[in-house]
Amino acid sequence: MAHCFSQLTDSRAEVFGGETPRVGMAGTGEGKKEEADYKRLHSFPLIRHTDMPEEMRVETMELCVTACEKFATNNESAAKMIKESMDKKFGSSWHVVIGEGFGFEVTHEVKNLLYMFFGGSLAVCVWKCS
């Protein structure tokens, strides 16, 4: 809990620090535009943590992006699609979590974990453990 708190304060500080110059530069009246900007800028997939080999990582990442775009409103379907494709491609048993906010503690087989953000608000965690 304490750890969580400290992170929170940290991030806030950063958010704050990141925003001030922009406000100063662009003026206060363009909040909407900024938001659109933010969405546009933050739409790319961002890998937070992975131990996959290069080829596998790229493939998995693309799969996640495809699934999240295809089922933009249904995380469950997206997760199902990812899981099934991964099972087919790399053997069972894969587990997928998609959501906007969650905590997790998982055991995974080494070199079979991908944890990424996508679209500015989604987190995807894919791992294998049979």
Partner: peptide, 10 residues
């Protein structure tokens, strides 16, 4: 195998 844990929020 190894363990991995994290917390995500907006």
């Amino acid at each position: 195998r190894s363990n991995f844990s994290d917390t995500v929020n907006q």
